[in-house]
């Protein structure tokens, strides 16, 4: 079923919407949640909560891409769960992602102003558009989907070490881009 049809079901308050969403994007949602939480049970709960969030927000929302919309909800729910589990000193996969993302953050003394998450999203989107399609997809698959380096290296046909270096160069390039824009978080 096409995204437009599934979204139409949400708008009609038809409960088949959740069934169709799970059929089409269930595996994707579980993978994104697992990549952040590294815990099957937590991921299951996140995905269920995400379906509930979709039900609550459509209408009025009518996303262009249901997958991106769902993924954003999953990431928000997963990072919230990570924060609570982090407070309880439980291990989570997001730890690695967050430590890698720290490379992208410009030093505060090198910037002119601090931006909020929304503006930062737009700056990162602009930077991504300047990359090749492969680099762009790689960055998003690693830091939006949270796919493991080993998985991506397998898909690319390169060694994980080589991919790690490539990702590091991309993070440094993003940091330089943000420094050039004179912003930080």
């Amino acid at each position: 079923m096409e995204d437009v049809q599934i979204i139409g079901l949400y708008w009609l308050r038809d409960e088949n919407a959740i069934r169709e969403t799970d059929r089409k994007y269930g595996a994707f949602c579980h993978r994104v949640a697992m990549n952040i939480l590294h815990c099957f049970q937590d991921s299951e709960e996140c995905v269920s909560d995400a379906y509930g969030r979709c039900w609550d927000t459509m209408p009025p929302q009518r996303p262009q891409s249901l997958r991106a919309y769902l993924g954003a909800i999953i990431r928000n729910l997963s990072i919230s769960r990570y924060r609570s589990s982090h407070a309880q000193k439980r291990f989570s996969g997001a730890e690695v992602l967050l430590s890698e993302l720290a490379d992208c953050i410009p030093a505060r003394d090198s910037v002119q102003r601090t931006v909020e998450s929304g503006e930062l999203s737009e700056l990162i989107s602009q930077w991504l558009e300047s990359l090749t399609a492969e680099d762009r997809s790689l960055f998003i698959r690693r830091y939006w989907n949270g796919d493991p380096v080993k998985t991506l290296a397998g898909e690319l046909g390169v060694r994980p070490n080589a991919l790690t270096k490539r990702l590091l160069r991309m993070r440094e390039a993003l940091r330089r881009h943000l420094e050039k824009e004179g912003v930080s978080v």
């Binding site: 990072i79 989107s125 997809s137």
Partner: peptide
């Protein structure tokens, strides 16, 4: 700051995310 960055990446433009998938 890392979490703010994480949130910023969460809200990347939908078309970029869709293209990557």
């Amino acid at each position: 700051r890392e979490e703010i960055f994480f949130d910023a990446i969460t809200n990347l433009r939908e078309e970029l995310v869709e293209e990557a998938q």
